[in-house]
Design a protein around this nucleic acid. Structure first.
Length: 649
RNA sequence: GCCAGUGUAGCUCAGGGGUAGAGCGCUUCCUUGGUAAGGAAGAGGUCAUGAGUUCAAUUCUCAUCACCGGCUCCA
């Protein structure tokens, strides 16, 4: 007998060799039907694998990430089997799970191409194979035998994978006639899969390297119930409705014109207002934190980027230098603002008493992103960074870092961003020569970041080797409507540029010292931030931010003049108001303006005109009764200042 | 840059070898109204661009461009 410890710490005894499924059956028959995999002493395993000694276990159901992964992993194998059925001779790469489902990278036989139209057939085959309830059987195999097997099968990618594996750890999984190299774990049989959707086809380089062959990647997702698939598809539809490109068009925020060029956004009046409001807000915050605004040109002498090192590192991937009519002059569109700011720092000698110098600029930069990478506003070729550079003494680094985190928190609160991830990127300690700067400085900077995050109670993940070559950094990531992660705010420590530009300050010892530079952008870029903000709010921006706060709706043409008067009066009080004087019934105007996501609608007719009032209607909440114009002005201004005060707290 | 897909009116889309349709939007007229779509008429398209096949191409083929989904990249 062996002792099995369950997650609630209760212990049950079983015969040696009991399987996960056996344990589930002993607990309840319903559990036995739903269980997908088991963790044995923390290792996720197949349900059918015997347990030989005392262990603590956890059974995984569909609700567990581990359970889903097992489910989707097996699904990938079944999809591979289905693909092999239609395309014999297909060579298989890897088939892992992802956040929402799984994929398999395949190399189709010569001349065969897979397109969306083929997916329905494969889906049907997957369901057919699932209904067979074929056992999924694990077997261990020696490296030599594995190599022989896949050589015979003609699977060069598998052979490459096996070559890298350690002998004695290699396992195969077989269901029906399909055998795959796999670590597992897997479902007991294929019958668990009741619904399948192959979502898309993409190209992907073998092992992620551009130098390798591009394989066909088929993405799919499966569920244990048809209803779950239907719910997932509804969710996908909902997410698509939040797509910033769609809302940007609907709300007339921005536009891309091929005549201007790809990846070059045109900000429409409402989008520009939105952006301007964000900029004003951040400028105000930054002013309180001791920042000074600067303005620098959009181009710079090539020599500037030679000095900064960017030309050597990124020159090939930038917009190419601009040649002037006179010989010998070459300018680059600026790919970043830092070199310009370094020159501002240098324009006069600095004392240790002057530091930190905090220089902010909404600086528009130009980067030649690869054409295939452009994506709405999240990845563009011209964008405006809410950039600032802090030049400080090494002993001020942590303090400055803390203050930047404060700024980011204020912004996230003002916009109700709660679901973000923070990542600390440090250097790879085993590969120090990749990085510039002394060990001492790196250690100081890294511990400053780690301590600052700890002091702020920030939940972080730490990635070794992810630091920039010039310093460690802290990034804030937010997910878009479809769950794709985007980096927004970033704080980076830099020892490189102060060195390259020979930046100095005179210390209290009357000697020259090198300042540390912090690059930071709480929004990241205005473009990307607006994109994520649109998806986060589905276009229903907070009142303080939204481009159109109020629309006045006259009941009939007779009251257009009064509506105009109300609108003018609100605008004088810094409320963004317009009127809808179309020749339509009031119901129609309400509907249209509700759909335009206007927070407040003011209905004015005979009654309001006579009493000098407005009938207030709040978005999604209907009629709120009437107020005088002054009351409404105070009401709106109060709501705005409350929203912002919450952020400052 | 690479792989696959898409490109028809301002927007969302239908259609299809014989040079085009709907809904919304827009213009004009009627209507002058009280909290989520009043009625009528009208304007608007080299069917992304270029070549090829054909008596005939918006439709088929190829190329180019843009967009979409990924891959690689992201100072």
């Amino acid at each position: 007998m062996i002792k099995i410890t369950l997650p609630d710490n209760s212990v049950r005894e079983f015969d040696q060799g009991i399987t996960g499924l056996g344990i589930a059956e002993a607990i309840s028959s319903r559990l036995a039907k739903e269980v997908l995999s088991i963790s044995v002493n923390g290792e996720v395993r197949d349900l059918m694998r015997p347990i030989d000694s005392d262990a603590s276990i956890k059974l995984h159901l569909w609700d567990d990430r581990e359970g889903q992964e097992t489910f989707w992993h097996s699904s990938a194998h079944i999809m591979a089997e289905a693909i092999e059925f239609f395309y014999p001779g297909t060579k298989f790469g890897i088939g892992p799970t992802v956040d929402n489902g799984f994929y398999y990278d395949i190399d189709l036989p010569e001349g065969k191409v897979l397109s969306d139209k083929d997916l329905a057939g494969i889906e049907q085959k997957v369901l057919e194979l699932s209904r067979l309830k074929s056992d999924i059987v694990r077997s261990e195999i020696s490296k030599a035998d594995a190599l022989e097997l896949f050589t015979a099968k003609g699977d060069p990618y598998k052979i490459e994978l096996i070559t890298d594996l350690v002998d004695g750890t290699i396992t195969l999984y077989r269901q029906g006639n399909f055998t795959d190299l796999c670590r597992g774990p897997h479902l007991p049989n294929t019958g668990f899969i009741k619904a399948v959707k192959l979502t898309n086809i993409a190209g992907a380089y073998w092992r992620g390297s551009e130098k390798n062959k591009m394989l066909t990647r088929v993405y799919g997702i499966t569920f244990p119930k048809q209803k779950l698939l239907e719910e997932y598809l509804v969710l996908l539809e909902e997410a698509k409705k939040r797509d910033h490109r769609k809302i940007g068009k609907e709300m007339e925020l921005f536009h891309f014109s091929p005549a201007v060029g790809m990846g070059l956004p045109l900000w429409l009046p409402k989008g520009a207002t939105l952006r301007d409001n964000l900029e004003k807000f951040l400028k105000k915050v930054q002013k309180k934190f001791g920042y000074e605004q600067v303005i620098t040109p959009h181009i710079g002498d090539v020599a500037l980027y030679r000095t900064s090192g960017h030309l050597a590192k990124y020159g090939k991937d930038s917009f190419q230098p601009i040649h002037t009519p006179n010989e010998g002059e070459e300018y680059m569109l600026k790919p970043m603002n830092c070199p310009h700011h370094c020159e501002i720092y240098k324009f006069k000698p600095r004392s240790y008493k002057d530091l930190p110098v905090r220089m902010a600029e909404f600086g528009t930069v130009y980067r030649y992103e690869q054409s295939g990478e452009l994506h709405g506003l999240t990845r563009v070729r011209s964008f405006t960074q809410d950039d600032a550079h802090i030049f400080c003494r090494p002993d001020q680094l942590k303090e400055e870092f803390l203050k930047v985190i404060d700024i980011i928190f204020i912004i996230f609160r003002a916009l109700d961003f709660k679901d973000y991830a923070a990542q600390i990127s440090l250097r790879d300690p085993n590969n120090k020569e990749k990085y510039i700067g002394s060990d001492e400085n790196w250690e100081k900077a890294e511990s400053a970041i780690i301590e600052a995050c700890a002091e702020k109670g920030l939940k972080t993940v730490t990635e070794l080797g992810e630091a920039a070559f010039y310093g460690p950094k802290l990034d804030f990531m937010i997910k878009d409507a479809l769950g794709r992660k985007w980096q927004l705010g970033t704080i980076q420590v830099d020892y490189n540029l102060p060195e390259r530009f020979g930046l100095e300050y005179i210390g209290s010892d009357d000697k020259r010292h090198r300042p540390v530079m912090i690059h930071r952008a709480p929004f990241g870029s205005m473009e990307r931030f607006c994109a994520v903000l649109i998806e986060h709010t589905a276009g229903k921006f907070p009142l303080w931010l939204t481009p159109e706060q109020v629309v006045v709706l006259p009941i009939s043409e007779k009251y257009n003049e009064y509506a105009q008067k109300v609108s003018n009066q609100l605008n004088i009080s810094d409320i963004r108001a317009g009127i809808d004087d179309r020749n339509e019934k009031i119901g129609r105007k309400i509907r249209d303006n509700e759909m335009k996501r206007i927070p407040y609608l003011l209905i004015v007719g005979e009654k309001e005109f006579e009493q000098n009032t407005v009938a207030v209607r709040r978005q999604g909440e209907g009629d709120q009764g009437s107020m005088t114009i002054d009351e409404f002005t105070a009401f709106i201004n109060n709501e705005v200042s409350e929203q912002l005060a919450d952020a400052w707290k």
